[in-house]
Design a protein around this nucleic acid. Structure first.
Lengths: 202, 202
DNA sequence: AAATAAATTAATCATTTGATTAATTTATTT
DNA sequence: AAATAAATTAATCAAATGATTAATTTATTT
């Protein structure tokens, strides 16, 4: 027993992509060896280049997927003109907690790689996507004296930061994996409550 | 013009260490080439091994410094039995914002490297250091129905996360470097206010 | 000033690593 | 079934990279 992800029936190409998703996301581009991916995929190293030409190209594919996964979640919520501010906050927190419990390495991966590869978000226009959102309008209306970006960053921070700090939080036996997950579940209700209180403040 | 950090008068050993601090912190261990460090330090590559034996040893030195810098800030504050809860929160936020404005790469560096090198925090006992703190007692007293770790993670998240998400936040012209710094200054007052409101909630 | 130690350099090594090639096997088409 | 294309493999390459060595220069001690 060793492999887990790449199913026996999947094509070699898909096995490589699946292994690449896993290894790149966990270790980052620089620390990843193409041989790691090949081994985890259970295929010959040459097949990686046969199907994807280069490590960089394969990484690009994985990175695009991960960006879409990470930012695709928030886009429809913040731009829904029919939902209330409170509802938007609830959805953001709940969706992210669920997704991050399944993909705990995602935030650190995205942030780390983006810092070195600053072309990638120009493509995704993440910032504009949020700045021009309906959520921003609602925040501005409810609390005109504070820059709405403060609240967006805060809500995302309250939701995502625990997953980034997970290695520290779990560095003792005091908090095992299930307890961490339980706390994140609690935050689905806590963070929206807190956010609403924050917006009222002052 | 190229070099900036390593002064002309500093010893070769110190120039290497200074360059290593910079390069490791910015690019991480895996993406750093010893030649990058040597070049930035303006010394011959062999001197790096002459003084520090190996890339790994040099990294260990830098990492210990950075850990001390990052966690040393919070330790005295959270364990001060004479300060109020509110005062502790104000100090944590204010100190971290100041330090992170000077060292914006620090959080991402620490978190990224810790994930791969899980032995390092066992040494620092970061988690225990916080769990057994006076701050935890004060939080437990003021809000017994919520695990105090929720608040610690939240306060740190509100303070540190903006620096982790900085590459995203600044991905457009909408927010330049000075504006980002200004927002972080604002958060010195905002985050404590918010934290107090959060602790009261429910 | 001579002798010794420390610092510095250029050249080189051994491994690692991304990638390619040529041959072989498997699948698909005619 | 024969011919052709696609997939797979083992072997190998070239460049990058961490590290060492032997020689040279600079500083320190005697």
């Amino acid at each position: 027993m060793a492999k887990s992800k790449p199913s026996k029936t999947a094509s070699a190409e898909e096995k490589i992509k699946e292994a690449a998703r896993h290894v790149f996301t966990k270790k980052g581009y620089a620390a990843t060896r193409t041989r790691d991916i090949a081994e985890e995929a259970g295929i010959n190293l040459a097949l990686l280049n046969y199907y994807f030409r280069s490590k960089e190209k394969l990484f690009g594919i994985v990175m695009e997927e991960r960006m879409a996964q990470f930012f695709g979640l928030i886009t429809p919520i913040v731009n829904d003109v029919n939902s209330t501010l409170d509802r938007k906050i609830e959805l953001i927190v709940s969706y992210y907690v669920d997704m991050l419990l399944q993909n705990p390495d995602l935030p650190l991966f995205i942030m780390s790689e983006l810092r070195h590869d600053s072309d990638l978000f120009r493509k995704f226009q993440v910032q504009n996507l949020i700045i021009n959102s309906h959520l921003i309008l609602q925040l501005k209306e409810k609390q005109p004296s504070i820059h709405p970006l403060h609240f967006v960053v805060s809500i995302l921070g309250l939701t995502i930061f625990p997953f980034i700090a997970k290695p520290i939080i779990q560095s003792t036996d005091a908090l095992n994996s299930q307890m961490f997950a339980a706390m994140m579940e609690e935050r689905k209700k806590l963070v929206p409550k807190w956010a609403k209180a924050m917006i009222k403040v002052k």
